[in-house]
Every structure is written in C-alpha cells, then in structure tokens.
Design a protein around this nucleic acid. Sequence first.
DNA 1: TATGAATGAGAATTCATTCAT
DNA 2: CATGAATGAATTCTCATTCAT
Lengths: 216, 216, 216, 216
Amino acid sequence: MSATARRRTTDHRTRVGRERSARTETKILAAALRVFAERGPDAPKIDEFVAAAGISRGTFYNHFDSVGALLTATSEWTTGELLRTIEVALDGIEGPVLRFGLGLRLFFAKAQSDHVWSLFVARVWKMGSLELPVRDLEEGLQLGLFRAPSPDAMRDLLFGAVREALLRIGGGHASRQYGDEMSALCLQALGVDSRRIATVMRHALPAVVPAEAVER
Amino acid sequence: MSATARRRTTDHRTRVGRERSARTETKILAAALRVFAERGPDAPKIDEFVAAAGISRGTFYNHFDSVGALLTATSEWTTGELLRTIEVALDGIEGPVLRFGLGLRLFFAKAQSDHVWSLFVARVWKMGSLELPVRDLEEGLQLGLFRAPSPDAMRDLLFGAVREALLRIGGGHASRQYGDEMSALCLQALGVDSRRIATVMRHALPAVVPAEAVER
Amino acid sequence: MSATARRRTTDHRTRVGRERSARTETKILAAALRVFAERGPDAPKIDEFVAAAGISRGTFYNHFDSVGALLTATSEWTTGELLRTIEVALDGIEGPVLRFGLGLRLFFAKAQSDHVWSLFVARVWKMGSLELPVRDLEEGLQLGLFRAPSPDAMRDLLFGAVREALLRIGGGHASRQYGDEMSALCLQALGVDSRRIATVMRHALPAVVPAEAVER
Amino acid sequence: MSATARRRTTDHRTRVGRERSARTETKILAAALRVFAERGPDAPKIDEFVAAAGISRGTFYNHFDSVGALLTATSEWTTGELLRTIEVALDGIEGPVLRFGLGLRLFFAKAQSDHVWSLFVARVWKMGSLELPVRDLEEGLQLGLFRAPSPDAMRDLLFGAVREALLRIGGGHASRQYGDEMSALCLQALGVDSRRIATVMRHALPAVVPAEAVER
DNA sequence: TATGAATGAGAATTCATTCAT
DNA sequence: CATGAATGAATTCTCATTCAT
C-alpha cells in the first residue's frame, strides 16, 4: 500500500470517527436541552442526561467534563443561531420601534414554536449569553421614541418580562396571541404611544431564514 | 421533692426548653434565608444550613424534616408579614394608581433595606406565595387607568420586572433611586401617563409599622 | 438545668464523641497498616481499608480524605514512636560504633517482633520520614571508626540493606539470628574490624521502654 | 494479475506489515520504559503508555494484552542483553574479587549512561529477573576473600545497595564517581581489604561490546 | 494493523439520615 | 432538645476493553 493510500485510509478513519463523535455530541445536547428545560440548571443528575440521550455514562464523559460544562455547551448550541437569525430577518427594517417590536414578536414566535427551547432559555438564561438588542434600545432612547427612568430599570423590566413570558409559553399556558400581546406591552412599557404600537403589531412578520437546518 | 415542686420544675424546664427551641429555630431560619439567597432553592445541601446556623446535623432534623420543608418555612417566615404590613401602610390611600405605585415603592424600599431578603425572594418566589396586589390592578383596569393587552401579559411583565429588580438590588448593583425608578417604569408599563406617575413619585412614602420586631 | 450543668453535659457529649472518633481512627490506621503492608502503597482501594477496618465507606471519609492522606497518617502513626524509643534505649551508651550497632539490632528486633510493621515500613518508607541516625554515623566517620568512599554511597548502602532486610523479615523468610547478622554485616560494610563487631554483637540488648502501650 | 505477481505483492505487504508492526512494538516498549521508570510498576494506566508512545488505545491491545504483560516484555527487552554483555566483557578476567568489582563498575556505568533504564530497573526489579553474579560470590566466600555472617544477609545488603544506587543515579543526584564509590563500598561490605579494593578500582574498565545496537 | 468512539463494570466520593450519648 | 460519629444508598467519575471502520 502506498503512503498516499495509507494516508487516505487514515484520513477516512479520522473523518468517520469525527462524524460519529459529532453526531453523539448533538444527541447529548438535544437531550440536555430537554432535561434542563424540565428540571432547571441545578437539579439534574448525570444519569438523566445519559438516559435521555440513550448513551452510556462513559460516553457522556468522553464529551463533557461535568454538568456545568454541558450546561454551557447547551446554552451556546441553543441560542447561538437565533439572535443572528433574527438580526438577518430584520435587515432592511428601519426605525428602532419597528425593529425592536418586530424582533420581540419573532423571538416569541420562535418560543411558541418550540416549548422545550422556551423553557430552557427561561430557566438557564443568564445575562450575557443572550443579549437584548442594545443598539435599537439606545437609538430609540436618543430619538425620544423610548422613555425610561434609567437604563438599568429598563433592561431589568424587559429582561424579566421576557423570562416570565418564556416560562408561560414553555409551560403551555399561553394563548396564540400571547407573544404579540407581550410584545405590545413591552413597547408600552417603553413609553411608545398606542398608535405606533398598533402599527408595529399590524406589520407583517418578516420571514425567518434558518441559517441551516439544524438536525435535532 | 413534692409533686408540686416537681411540676413547677418541669414547667420551668418545659418553658426554658421551648424558648431555647424557638431561639434555635429562628437561628436556623435566619441562616436558611442567607443560604437560599446565595445559592437558590435547589443547590444547597443540609450541611450548608448546619454550618451557617452553627448547629449540629442532629439539631437540624429536630426542627425540619427536609430541605423542602425548610424552604417552605423560610418563605413563610420571611414574606408573611411584609405584604400585610404594606397593606396596612396603604390604608386610607385612595386610587389604584397611587395605591399600586406606593405599594411598589414600599416593596422596593424593603428590598433595598435588606439585600439578603431581596435575593431570597428573587430566587425562591413562586407564584402564589407572594401575590401581586390583584385588587388594585383589576380596579385600575376597569377604571381605564391601566391599559394592557391581556391580564396574563400584564401579570408576567410586572412579575418578571420585580424579580429582576430584586436580583439587582440583592446583588448590590442598584443605585439609591433604583427602587423608585423601577416603580415609575412599572406604572409606565401599565399605560399610566407621565403626569400621574410624577404625582405618585412625589407622594410621601407612608410609614411602615413593623408588625413586631422580628429578631434576626 | 443550670448553665453549668448544661455545659458539663455538653463537655461530656463532646468528650465521648471525641473518644469514639479516636477509637475509630485507630481502627482505621491499624487496618491500613496491614493493608499497605500486604499490597504496597499504590495498589489498595478504599474498600480494602473499609473492609479491613470493619467500618462503612462514609466513616472512612469522615476521617481521611484519600488513600494518600491515609498513607501519610499511617506512616506517622507507625514510625513516630519507634525511633524516639530507640533513642531513649541507647541513652547512656557511648561510642558511635556501639550505638549504631545496638540501634540496628534494636530496630531489627522490632521488625522481627512485628512482621506487618516490617513490611509496611519496607514498602512505604521514603527518605525523610524515617531517618538514619545521622549523628552517630558522622561522628564515627570523623573519628575514623567508619570508612566510606562517600556519604551518599554509605547512606544508600545502609538504606537499601535495611529495606531489603525488612522485606525478608516481613515475608517471614528470616532466621532468628538474621537481624543480628544483618547488623554485623552493616558494620562490616562501614569498615569496622571484626573484633569490634564481635564486641557489639556480644553486648546485651538494652531494654526498650515503650513510650506508652499503644493499643492496636 | 498473475498468481505469482499476486503472491509477490502479498509477500511485500506482509513484510512491510511485519516491519511496521515491529517498529510500533519497539515504540511502545521504549515508551513503557519511560513510564514505568517514572511511575513504578503499579500506578500507570493504559492511557499513559498510549500517550507516551503516541499510538491509539486499539493499537496497544494489538500488541499487548495488559499492563502486566507489557511490564514483563519491557523487563525482558531491557535487561536481557545487559548481564550477558557484562559476562562477555569479564571473559578472561580472573579472581572473584576483581570479577565482581569490575562487574559492578560496569553495571553502574551502564546505569549512569541511561537514567531512564536506571530508574526502571530500580523500581521494577524483582528477584529473579536480574540476578546477582552468584558464582563469583560463592567462589569468593569459599576462598575466604569475601566474608559475611550469612548468605541471605549478604545478598540482601548487596541487592538493596544496588537498588538505592540506581534510584539515586536515575534521579540525577549522583556525582560522576558515584558508581565507582558504591562499587568500592560494596567490596568493603564483603570484607575485602582496602588494598585489594584499590587494585580493583585502578583496573581499566573492560570494553563492553553491545550484542547488537538495540534501536531505541 | 491502526484508529478512537463507545462501553459499562467498578472505584471514588457525597450527603441525607439515624442514633447512642 | 442538642450533639456529631457512623451509616450506606445514591451519585460521580475512571479506565480497561471492545469493535466498527
């Protein structure tokens, strides 16, 4: 066998191995998403992930060092795409009020289409991993379109409202219009007047193009 | 020793014992408050309470059956008085807007005066144990003083906002005016116009009469 | 109950507890001595100590953090007294040759009276925890009673010889005179002439007064 | 393709395979030598050999069944030649004292030229795999050139001294003359008088002819 | 033969709970 | 009622071994 041939074989083995590994990792992450969504970030034991993913204990440790590491990885895996996706969907939309309002509506639409994701984000979300669209907010404040006694209060109110909304949606206790209602209420909280809110709510929801179909 | 004397001794012993027991229980509850505040409701182990309270494992079990029971007891011990206290302080104040606004300000004042309590409530609070002042809200809605797309959304937004606020306050990251700012923002979220908000904020904070000085 | 009485009770509880704890610890150490002697310092698993000591896993961890810590503790517990004991027994004996020779004979006598101890020391001994009687050696060298090409070589030869001797004794493959034979050979290795060696071997073995009867 | 051609190809493949296999095995053995030298015979895990040899787990098991088997193989691979080599080098040298002394000096020279080997032998050596030159010792005793209280003591002292010496050399804590010093001291331990020792030490070290250049 | 992901038995460790004092 | 040592089930984590590619 020539060196070239051998190298090709080696590459093949390596590639196949890596693919299998990646598939297993995805399986674990998908399972983790469900488990964290159901039980929160602290309660679950390794065995729950192992059982949910249908793998062995050993395999778990081949991929993640601890539940903490898994939580981090799941967070990243889960929220990474979404915000970018929304960003893209909002491309070409002008005006902070419209942009922020539509962004919220899109976000809640995602939540309503995936309760597991919704619960997971609600329970695990820590500031920083999933940011609010700071730019639109700041611009809106400067233009006088948004009003708030302080940035901290504004951020906390929006953040808390979204988290509670995700809990409700994830729990299956939300009506179909709930996402839009909460979006409207958030705009009202920012001091936007009713007419503008109505405009935002009437606006057609931009199409979301998934970056790529993530297998789950 | 006569029967009477014995009985008297026994009574004395019993009384002393009960007092000692009550004091121990208070010590445990106060410690639990700190521990739950720092670590949330799921993470802490029995030993953390034992260490924080400066007692032995055995003593813990003499008072509480499990961490769950302790959590419940701590919740009740902690929040039981407060809402009634606020209720009392608001006695005589008229108008849902003013009542709700002042109630919020009082609530945040309490939070800012006790960070441990603040964190505890933020982390442990589950719907039901600490209710929003439903009556004022409903009345305000009926009178057209509050506006919201739906009661669910309204409740979630307020609830979430308060929780985030408590987290900030408990973490020590809030300015002195933060409580008032958040109160104002909540009113704005309910559709109250700026003039009315200003009135509420200018209003003197009613005096709070502690039901009894709880030793901690 | 008076404060004094209570304190007395508390003290009593504390004392009883500490005594029980100390007894358990001794039990573990004694078991560890056997286990390490049989299996060496690396091989044994926690369960072997647990089984040998007749305690539960949990109890083991109440006393020692790891096998490593247990090894250290066992070493200290085991060798601490001996060298001091020998030191005391040699009190009043003059001359490095006589002192060193009798010290060796006493050491091997101890080994032959306790095979488990012998094997343990042989396997676990690391330089430093159980020192050779440096002072006698140095004095002997200065007086020209001992001869060696270098201190390092001398130390290594003696150290290695003693270790091998302990292995043989611990294994039960030593004759009754073996300890004395090895002592004599060590003196010969140090360049002591036969007549002097004979004197040392004829000398009565000083009585060893155990510092205190250690229960085992 | 003709049968002949095919056969030739097969032969070629086979030969290449065998060579590759032999090379891999050597790689594993060389790595094992280092690992055992550093960690002793009990502590190391399969992964350490795998990592040190730069191979995969699977490959390890293609060559050795267990750590025990590897240890045996490494011992044989490592010490097999040496003693025969020394034997050859001593060919023609007369007299037990001279032969034994020069043998020791050669042995330590080897140790000082290869610290890894030195540590490995020190840690792994168990009686039997690497024998002392019994014949010279017995002859020396019979001729009255060596003196010892008993054969056991003599063997143990020499054995222990050599092991300690190897540990020092392997650890890099030996001076350049250390090997010779220890050799001289061993002779002194056997009761050889200084003049004879001096003769042995002055004697030129016989040339060692490596049986074959062992690739490592 | 070489690879390395997957496996699961077994070893280490934690922690809620009991109980004699 | 208070104490804290002991317990052992539950859990975490390791590592020798297998096996499809």
